[in-house]
């Protein structure tokens, strides 16, 4: 799916980062992201890779959009895709 999911970088070790998604921490790879990323930054992620650093002025709007998508019923397909994406990174390290 092409939505991707936003998360907050908790820590960075080389090209691997721990990213927090709605309280769930996952490992994400940083080889594809085109800007330096550090703790506290927000990144957009897809199938276990960060693909974009979210500019600070866009973080609130981006998170608000996803919060709304996740408010849907459990059988909602967009919600399912986003939850699937959160799983798209390795488990809690």
């Amino acid at each position: 799916m092409c939505l991707g999911v936003p998360g907050r970088v908790v820590s960075v070790n080389g090209f691997s980062a721990v990213v927090d998604f709605w309280g769930v921490q996952k490992q994400v790879l940083l080889h594809l992201v085109d800007e330096p990323v550090g703790p506290g930054d927000y990144v957009l992620n897809h199938v276990g890779y960060a693909i974009r650093k979210i500019p600070s002025e866009d973080i609130a709007a981006t998170l608000a959009m996803y919060d709304q998508l996740l408010d849907a019923k459990p059988e909602d397909l967009m919600r399912q895709d986003i939850e699937g994406e959160v799983g798209a990174s390795k488990g809690r390290p």
């Binding site: 609130a60 709007a61 998170l63 608000a64 996803y66």
Partner: peptide, 12 residues
């Protein structure tokens, strides 16, 4: 995560 400050912009 954070409060959806701009909710109405998406769904107004």
């Amino acid at each position: 995560m954070s409060a959806p400050l701009r909710t109405l912009e998406f769904r107004d």
